[in-house]
Nucleic acid binder design. Structure first.
Lengths: 259, 259
DNA sequence: CGCGGCTAGATTGTATGCAAGAACTGAGAG
DNA sequence: CTCTCAGTTCTTGCATACAATCTAGCCGCG
């Protein structure tokens, strides 16, 4: 059975708890339905690893945390399950999804397939107006500091590009896959490869769909390998993070169901 | 704005209601959680068009119909939304998803992409045991009468084949797309093309992944065109079905949100 | 006669509470 | 020392009830 690892290196339970509170606070500010509040906060918390993989999510505790009843929590968890961020084991509740090397491989393989397809569809359809918008988004991406803003800017640029295809399912599926492994993208190994994005955008502007698709594929294959290597190296010193014993942030008994 | 049409030709409101009751009765028989009862029944009802596209789904009425409270109904609807079978507009409730020609095109385009990929991955991995199972499923598919059993048998054969890839996301995504357009597959135009499946299976058995993928792609392109043609022809005499005014089966005000 | 605001009804969103069932704990037998 | 089994605790699943919001119809005004 493959090892599951937590992507967080040195983060302490306290810093995670503080981060979680901050996320909730900013989301409470906006006037949303309770359900969306929970959904947005949980999503952000999971993606920033304030809730690390394997965390068991108890409805009661979450409801208390958000100041709501369990109903909106249940529905938000259900939604997150379909986004792939949490996993429900029947009668054992919800846990934050853990990814192993096989999952990484599958996700990147699908990303290559779908994003190449999207690029091939999009490039011939790009209008001057699209190009202007993409230029703006690209500039923002270049300027953005590393970290979360980098990720957000990249997401903005690429999803705008894919939207040009006019295929909502394709776009949704791509961003869902992207989100599934967004946690891995915060690892130190992977800090930003600006030259890749630059060459990619050049190909796009040149109308070279095949070239762009090829660049994208080779980039993703490389990233996938880096992540897998990191996973392997990290799995040894993994167990430390399991000691966190906050009411929300604790881990379930380490058991995986066979599928 | 593209016209949305209902795939049902001459079905009356009464026959649909009867069908719906039958579905519910058979599902009540099995001992399920209320939520699964609602989920299964609704899914079947939508896929068999007992609940035609555009039907507005009122939680209260559905709860009464199933003899439960609104909570399990809500959760089942939410699940169906992620399966693509129903659409929710915030504060305006749920409706059965309507598909237009563009949707059909996108779904089939994605199916070609994903299923070809799955075939290419699966074929080199097929073991003797797999082949034996596939033979059995294929035989059942050949024997199955047209209609729902045909569809189920086909689903069984193909999803078993794709499962060989060992890629849960790929398999799930394929069956989700399949389900989205399952309603269209019941139209009279599309009654079964056994020769396609036979040639496909021959290619699989011969280990010819590329050939199988090509067959699959050309078949789907053909089906997509047939469906689109049917859509166009049917859209004229569509409006009749909108007159149905059952409490469950009525349509919402014909308005689509721009995206 | 058409249009816009307003009230009443309908419908969704959420909270509380209870019951059924699973998972854990610990004691006792082998 | 291990395995089994019952009691306890925890968690989920569901029903009822209330609040917030939207929709539709009506009335008054232009």
């Amino acid at each position: 059975m493959p090892q599951k690892i937590t992507p967080i290196g040195q983060a302490t339970a306290e810093s995670r708890k503080a981060q979680l509170d901050r996320i909730i606070a900013t989301n409470v500010a906006r006037q949303l339905t309770a359900q969306d509040l929970v959904l947005n906060s949980m999503r952000e918390a999971i993606l920033t690893a304030a809730l690390p993989p394997g965390t068991r999510l108890r409805q009661e505790k979450l409801a208390e945390l958000f100041g709501t009843s369990r109903i909106p929590v249940r529905e938000a968890l259900r939604a997150l399950e379909y986004e792939g961020l949490v996993t429900s084991m029947p009668r054992r509740g919800f846990t934050v999804t853990e990814l192993d090397a096989d999952d990484i491989e599958e996700v990147y393989d699908l990303r290559v397939l779908l994003e190449s397809h999207a690029v091939r569809l999009a490039v011939p359809l790009i209008t001057d107006e699209d190009l202007q918008i993409l230029e703006g988004l690209y500039a923002r991406m270049v300027k953005a500091p590393s970290g979360d803003e980098q990720l957000a800017a990249r997401e903005g640029f690429y999803s705008r590009l894919y939207t040009i295809t006019g295929r909502p399912r394709l776009v949704a599926q791509i961003s869902r896959l992207r989100q599934e492994i967004a946690r891995s993208l915060r690892w130190p190994t992977l800090q930003h490869a600006p030259e890749h994005h630059e060459r990619f955008f050049e190909a796009i502007k040149a109308g070279d769909a095949e070239g762009a698709a090829a660049l994208l594929a080779s980039h993703y294959r490389r990233v996938a390998i880096l992540i897998r290597r990191y996973l392997r190296d990290a799995s040894a010193k993994d167990r430390v993070t399991m000691a966190t014993a906050d009411a929300i942030t604790d881990h379930p008994t380490r058991r995986r169901q066979a599928k």
